[in-house]
Design a protein around this nucleic acid. Sequence first.
DNA 1: TTGAAAGCGCTAACAC
DNA 2: GTGTTAGCGCTTTCAA
Lengths: 342, 342
Amino acid sequence: MPVTIYDVAREAGVSMATVSRVVNGNPNVKPATRKKVLDVIEKLGYRPNAVARGLASKRTTTVGVVIPDISSPLFAELARGIDDIANMYKYNIILGDSDQNVEKEISLINTLLEKQVDGMVFMGGAITPEHTRTFTTSSVPIVLAGTRDPEGKLPSVNIDHFQGAYDATTRLINGGHQKVAMITGPLENPLRGRERYEGYLQALKDAGITPREEWIRSGEFRYESGLELAQYFLDLDEDLRPTAIFAGSDALGIGAIHAVQDRGLSVPDDIEVMGFDNIRLAEMVRPRLTTVVQPIYDIGAVAMRLLTKLMNGEDVEQDDVVLPHRIEERNSTRPLSSSANK
Amino acid sequence: MPVTIYDVAREAGVSMATVSRVVNGNPNVKPATRKKVLDVIEKLGYRPNAVARGLASKRTTTVGVVIPDISSPLFAELARGIDDIANMYKYNIILGDSDQNVEKEISLINTLLEKQVDGMVFMGGAITPEHTRTFTTSSVPIVLAGTRDPEGKLPSVNIDHFQGAYDATTRLINGGHQKVAMITGPLENPLRGRERYEGYLQALKDAGITPREEWIRSGEFRYESGLELAQYFLDLDEDLRPTAIFAGSDALGIGAIHAVQDRGLSVPDDIEVMGFDNIRLAEMVRPRLTTVVQPIYDIGAVAMRLLTKLMNGEDVEQDDVVLPHRIEERNSTRPLSSSANK
DNA sequence: TTGAAAGCGCTAACAC
DNA sequence: GTGTTAGCGCTTTCAA
């Protein structure tokens, strides 16, 4: 019983085509006709059926978003970037949590494709051959945000995680440290895990420091992990005990700060801590966390913008976007100048 | 050129109806036929078109979600609760950020309705007559999560904010405090703002304490606000200066803790702080924040569950759900026993 | 257990 | 500027 385009046409004494034209803002309608139709639409409370429109036009103005966990601050901010740009281009997003579980991811992608999304942004961990296979069956563009396709076929937007970790570690070393430890999440995670770890290692080597197995602990990218992993360092013998900790994520870093503080030690006086990501929390602890700033919102926004271009069939010069990162100096590290004369 | 149900039917030598039956798990299909069809589906890589299905069946298995800001920890967790239950019942969610802006909210609701969602969960601030009017035009059920309809017409799920604030304030008073201040967000917000404020006032009155204008500061429900508003108290004369602060949200509470600490004072020794909401951050500060626990995830989950019932046309005994709250004692307040002999 | 056929509400040529 | 007419890909009676 909802009112259809046909009802409007009849009531206004015009054809469905004309109603369709005014609804879609087609200029080829006489102003008088347009007004008449608009009045009837108003009067009848007509609401166009987007599903019917989608079937007829083969465009749904909806994009799919696969996200590991919307309740994670990092991903929530990414999602916000995506949604803002999506809206700007009149798209809505269908959002689904995957928990980085391959099976869920694949199933979600298929569901999204069945729902005829016009495109998709995918956030996750590793891109497996199974992902690639599924992506291949898609007739609509897909862009990766915060992940990269090992084969480099798919468009993506990221930062240079290796370089970020390298810079962070080097910064710590320049602060006078020789014993720089790292805590991280699963190394199986190619970007947040592996690349950051490699960057750390490389920085040590380039500084002539031999990495030690005792300086590297991995768990999850979570606060509790940071709390726990950092304890290990504090129990090490004096000569081995790290004086600086590079955390593979801010949540880990904040956990590390608290682990140190819970022992009655001071950050940064006894141990300096460096984070990675710059989630909002980084400013909401004491001391405030020095960290590698990743433009999280922008990654989402740029990914969505890239997707709109792809959906429009525009060529994109660069479809493997690398956004800049930088280190934000806060209080979990000592200022460089003063630590120089340490 | 994608393969359609018709292609499958032809290739399998059956009718579209039969293919439709096997795809939809209708049992009235001979096993042999089913297998044949399934094989063809596999072989052709057939993917049902959910848009066409939606048009024909008038069900999209999609629900709309209006959220103020997905990048806020509170709402992100609510959203996760919604999505999990939605998935459990085979629904997907279309998510849209409204920034609590009435115009955006209305427009979003209309878009969602055009997209033929089977139902909707709405999160926001105040429900204005304009909201009510728009909701009325909906032929699908709508449930409010974390908001209540002043007229009490719409189904909703909440906690008792007044009581939560009352309990929190009373707890502080029982801890030996007479000068209990409150910092809050906008009082125009009916539940998080107004009701919590009223609960605070009532608790003071019931304890025979006369509320003072100086003890109440309002800003936004944000960390920065907490930092700023709490400063005001610290500058008050000794006889007026609060010894306990009740924060209308955890973000505010954490800000207050830092404001106190930044003055070189101690929480809870010099000033006790109580939060509200129990976002994950509450455990990620030192001292850990004592707070009124609101079952955030569950509010989302219960709201979605309620929506599924409504969408199924099941009767629901109670459509104005009030979930329990409790106070989680952490370290921003002193234990009650020891403060008793203060 | 299966098939035929009539839509679902709209867009998109194409003709006038 | 406006109307006619096919579909879009599927579900759903209704018959058989």
